[in-house]
Design a protein around this nucleic acid. Structure first.
Lengths: 340, 340
DNA sequence: GTGAAAGCGCTAACAG
DNA sequence: CTGTTAGCGCTTTCAC
């Protein structure tokens, strides 16, 4: 293994000079720098991560804690994770992957050991057990998702309240008066997941403002479950013409069932989805949708955490504004017989 | 920050004793051990990862390199990654998440710096650029997927050849004579992805042995693309009664289209999928399928890599035997008019 | 602009 | 069964 000392000897300089060439923390004459860099290349030197961490008290590692649960849409988690990893690299950090398995204790282990300089937590719950531990550790952290109490916490998330409102506005603008919301699995609401509730808040308050009727039905992602849910929706509210779906797994079953029922999209029924663009564009009908900006969330999380690591203070809640893209699944509400 | 020295002082023992209590590498009297453990707890001591790595020359980190590409089915990648992370923890290792972004250079960086003790590579290609770098690094590695040349390499993968054969056997056993294979996106075959080709090998050779006609059509996962593909299949081979799908995104579109065409599953057409169980059970028809054992692959990869790290030598190719689960999408071939 | 040298916190001989 | 001690390879004062 090549050490810094060997590089120094080879280049005819001192160890500290090599170190400073590497870190750029003090000025080096062009000539010296060049000699050192050549030696580094010739010897194939790689600074030892452990030694560096010990001496500098920084590991250059950011821990990313992903949920163990699997009832959330997995590709989004993955996309965030990948975005975190690649963005972190551009800032000189590597990413340590922690699963929920170990529980809150992982927070203590990782920060206590100095394994990671900072943490990013995904899938934050309203009363997240990890947050108290985070507070007592001195390491910076960023949450993806919003806890109930955000004081002293830095968070990134899509503005789900605005997202809900936006969906309702779009359908209202097209003349729809009765809207059904096909939601996440019941378990998601039962554990009071923040994003789901915030979406409902946005949905409900804008619907109230605009005088629309809104029916919310949580739903498992299976075809059968959705068949039941849809039947009940049409049973309770036969006049339903607009659907808002917040459940990736339910998208295709919903479209298939509407087809089976002879309801043409968007002529008889409009569908607006809250889902990643990929899902919206690959569905059997290209879906009008509000995108889940997974990449941007991962990227912003890293940028916030790096800012904190570099002392640029930042305790803020970043809510990304929703963007609705009109595609082929939404159109004017059908004219009702009773109308006029 | 609490150090080992402070723990030693607090417990009235030497530093090495504390170290050995932690590592268990030499016997300690019950009384001493207890005293030390109490001090550790009282002081809230966590061994410093950097110092440990430096002194022991082992970071207790396994690097996991996931592909950047996104045309593979993401949930499987995620499931493998999670399985790797949780299994690694049970062996005392953490997992560093590397993306393909950085390219093969990441291998050098991570092994060269001693950041990771070993690597696990996902989505290995037939001529993978990372393999030569792996060979010259002294660190153990395990591949998930098979490269063209496996000599001196430890690999884990589903036995896709056997998987292909198994699918054909199942349909043949039900009396199907003309089978269409709905494959991955064309790009997957164009870059000669190992698993896709091995599946085709198994499919073709068993079909030949059993005297079945086999038609292979690569296909993008979109509804429209599949509509075209399916039309062509029925055009070329009107007698097709069996489908084998190896493309998660194509599953639901295929089922929807068959429905639209008035072909009942499994009465008129049988469908066998090669996909994760979750996809098979959540589809609009519960699919007869060969499972992709994502968890087991991740787990086995970790076990192999840990075995190597502990000196238990193991250069082997582990091919997991496929398992076909019969569900509601496959049945006896319809009786043909021309038959008998 | 460069060097010398003191640790960072831990492990693992070596000694008893 | 326990203690002493010499590093591990790097960063960072301090000194020039």
């Amino acid at each position: 293994m090549v050490t810094l000392a060997e590089v120094a000897r080879h280049a005819g300089v001192s160890a500290s000079t090599v170190s400073y060439v590497l870190s750029g923390k003090r000025s080096i004459s062009a000539e010296t720098r060049e000699r050192v860099e050549r030696s580094i290349r010739q010897l194939g030197y790689h600074p030892n991560a452990g030694a560096r961490a010990l001496a500098s008290n920084r590991s250059n590692i950011i821990a990313l804690m992903v949920p163990l649960r699997t009832d959330m849409y997995v590709p989004v988690m993955m996309e965030i994770a990948i975005a975190v990893a690649t963005t972190a690299r551009t800032h000189g950090y590597d990413v340590l992957l922690l699963t929920g398995e170990e529980g809150p204790a992982a927070v203590r282990r990782v920060t206590g050991s100095g394994l990671a300089d900072a943490m990013i937590l995904m899938d934050v719950e309203l009363e997240d057990e990890r947050l108290p531990l985070l507070r007592e550790s001195d390491r910076p952290a960023v949450l993806i998702g919003l806890p109930g109490d955000t004081t002293g916490q830095t968070c990134v998330d899509l503005d789900f309240t605005a997202t809900g409102a936006l969906c309702v506005e779009h359908l209202a603008g097209l003349g729809h008066r009765e809207i059904a919301v096909v939601g996440e699995a019941p378990a998601v609401y039962e554990r009071h997941t923040g994003f789901a509730e915030r979406t409902m808040d946005g949905l409900r308050s804008r619907a109230a403002e605009l005088g629309l009727r809104l029916l919310h039905r949580p739903c498992e992602g299976s075809f059968d479950a959705l068949a039941g849910t849809l039947a009940r929706i049409y049973d309770e509210r036969p006049g339903t013409t607009g659907f808002i779906v917040q459940n990736e797994a339910a998208v295709e079953p919903l479209l298939g069932l509407l087809r089976q029922l002879g309801r043409a999209v968007p002529e008889d029924a409009s569908v607006v989805a809250i889902c990643p663009d990929q899902v919206a564009t690959q569905a059997s009908v290209r879906l009008t949708s509000v995108a889940i900006p997974a990449q941007e969330m991962g990227q912003r999380a890293v940028e916030l955490v790096v800012a904190k690591l570099e002392g640029r203070d930042r305790d803020e809640v970043v809510l990304l504004p929703p963007q609705l893209t009109v595609r082929s699944s939404s159109g004017p509400a059908p004219v009702r017989a009773a109308d006029g």
